[in-house]
């Protein structure tokens, strides 16, 4: 327990070391999350457009 508090205290430099790591983690995780969100959104739109187009050309052929 004592070693754990010691670890988090970082020799008195906790107010500098932990924000550095936490900030880096937040930035990288946000970047990854936004990139995955964009990918999912674009791939879904593309799929919808393609089925729509296929459906439309199908109608033209049948009519």
């Amino acid at each position: 327990m004592e070693t754990l508090t010691e670890f988090f205290a970082m020799g008195g430099y906790a107010p500098y070391i932990w924000p550095a790591y936490i900030l880096a983690a937040i930035i990288l995780v946000t970047l990854l999350g936004l990139s995955l969100r964009d990918l999912r959104r674009n791939e879904n739109t593309l799929k919808a457009l393609r089925t729509e187009r296929r459906g439309r050309t199908g109608d033209e052929v049948s009519s």
Binding site: L28, L32, S35, L39, E43, L46, R53
Partner: peptide, 24 residues
Amino acid sequence: AFYFAVLIVRLRSEIAAAKIRNIR
């Protein structure tokens, strides 16, 4: 490795966006 992983994700996304533009 993180850069290349996110790069591939973003590139796939950009390629999909380009295809969407072409269809529209």
